[in-house]
Measured scan of single mutants.
Amino acid sequence: TEYKLVVVGAGGVGKSALTIQLIQNHFVDEYDPTIEDSYRKQVVIDGETCLLDILDTAGQEEYSAMRDQYMRTGEGFLCVFAINNTKSFEDIHQYREQIKRVKDSDDVPMVLVGNKCDLAARTVESRQAQDLARSYGIPYIETSAKTRQGVEDAFYTLVREIRQH
């Protein structure tokens, strides 16, 4: 089974770092803004072998026109913010609204991801993020692309959301 996953969120929150940590098991430290990259990885989730087709997208506003296209083809979405960047957390709402509009559905598989949880300088409390996820009816997972904490959990949870859909 193949799953088309799309990673969305503001610029600099760590979308590529999360994806590369999942696929290649290493942490990319330097920031190089993405336009669009796709990665494929075969994994076993709950005993089922599946192929993850992951689209890593641009957070930069100037590429926002490309969003409709990949939102149409994606089956599930990782909505990523950084726990030390309140603005990126506030941006999640717009991504969710755009996904709902493009998919013409209120019920699209999504996982809210709070990345950079290895950093002490948190400005978005776990509780705020949990409340937001609960209001959307989606899971919330904290990750660190640096330490790998929660990385597999985030992507695998999204696959489970798609399966249950």
Rank of each mutant, 00 (worst) to 15 (best):
C117P: 08
Q24T: 07
Q130R: 08
E61G: 14
I45E: 05
I162R: 12
T57P: 04
T147G: 14
D107V: 00
Q149W: 07
D37W: 06
T49L: 02
D104L: 06
A145L: 10
Q60E: 15
R101A: 04
V7Y: 03
I23D: 04
R101C: 03
D118H: 12
E36D: 15
D56S: 00
T49S: 07
V102W: 07
N25K: 07
L51H: 12
C50P: 10
S144G: 15
F89H: 02
Y136W: 15
S64A: 01
Y140V: 11
M110F: 03
V124Y: 11
D53V: 04
L55S: 12
I141C: 11
Q98M: 12
G12Y: 15
I54R: 03
S64N: 05
N84S: 06
P109Y: 05
E142C: 09
Q98K: 11
A17T: 00
T57L: 14
N25M: 10
Q60Y: 15
A121K: 13
T147F: 10
N115C: 15
A17M: 03
Q130S: 11
Y3M: 10
R134M: 13
F77E: 05
D29N: 01
K4L: 07
D29Y: 03
Y140W: 10
T57D: 06
A82R: 03
Q128K: 08
D29T: 00
P109L: 01
G114V: 11
E90D: 01
E62Y: 15
K4M: 06
L52W: 05
T19N: 13
V124G: 14
S144R: 15
Q130E: 09
K15C: 05
K103I: 05
H165M: 11
F77G: 02
E90A: 08
V13S: 12
R101V: 01
V124L: 12
Q149F: 07
E97P: 06
G76W: 00
G11N: 15
Q69E: 02
I162Q: 06
Y39F: 07
S126R: 09
V151M: 15
L5A: 01
V102I: 03
T86I: 03
R127Q: 06
Q24F: 00
S38K: 03
I162T: 10
L55V: 04
V44H: 07
I20T: 01
D29P: 07
E152N: 15
S105N: 15
V6Y: 14
V159T: 09
Y3R: 14
E161T: 09
E36N: 03
K15E: 00
Q69K: 04
Q149P: 14
Q60V: 15
S38W: 00
T143F: 07
I141G: 14
Q24C: 11
E97R: 03
R134F: 07
G14P: 00
M110A: 01
D153S: 09
C79E: 00
A10C: 07
F155P: 09
V111G: 13
G47W: 00
A65C: 11
F77I: 01
R72Y: 06
Q24D: 05
N115S: 13
M66Y: 11
E75F: 11
R72D: 10
Y39L: 01
S144I: 14
H165P: 09
S64G: 13
R148K: 10
V7R: 02
F89D: 09
G9C: 00
A120R: 08
A120G: 13
D91G: 06
G150C: 03
K15R: 00
D32T: 11
S16I: 00
D118T: 13
C117M: 10
Y70L: 14
K100H: 04
Q24G: 13
V43Y: 05
G114C: 13
V159N: 05
E61H: 11
A145P: 15
P109V: 05
L112Y: 05
V124W: 13
Y31R: 02
Q24E: 02
T49M: 02
K103S: 04
D46P: 03
G14L: 00
T1G: 07
R67T: 14
D131W: 06
N25E: 05
V13F: 00
V159C: 11
I35R: 07
T147M: 09
D37E: 03
S105A: 03
I83G: 10
S16R: 00
Q94M: 10
Q164N: 11
A133D: 05
P109I: 00
E48D: 01
R96E: 01
K4H: 07
I99E: 03
T1V: 03
Y63R: 15
S105V: 02
H93A: 10
L55M: 11
K100F: 08
A10G: 07
E61Q: 08
L78R: 01
R96M: 07
F27L: 09
E36K: 02
Y95F: 05
T123E: 12
A129F: 14
R40Q: 04
S88D: 07
S38L: 11
L119D: 15
S126V: 10
I138Q: 12
R160P: 07
Q69H: 03
T1E: 02
D68T: 05
D118L: 09
R40A: 02
A129D: 00
L55D: 15
Q94Y: 04
F155S: 09
Y70A: 03
Y70G: 05
L51N: 04
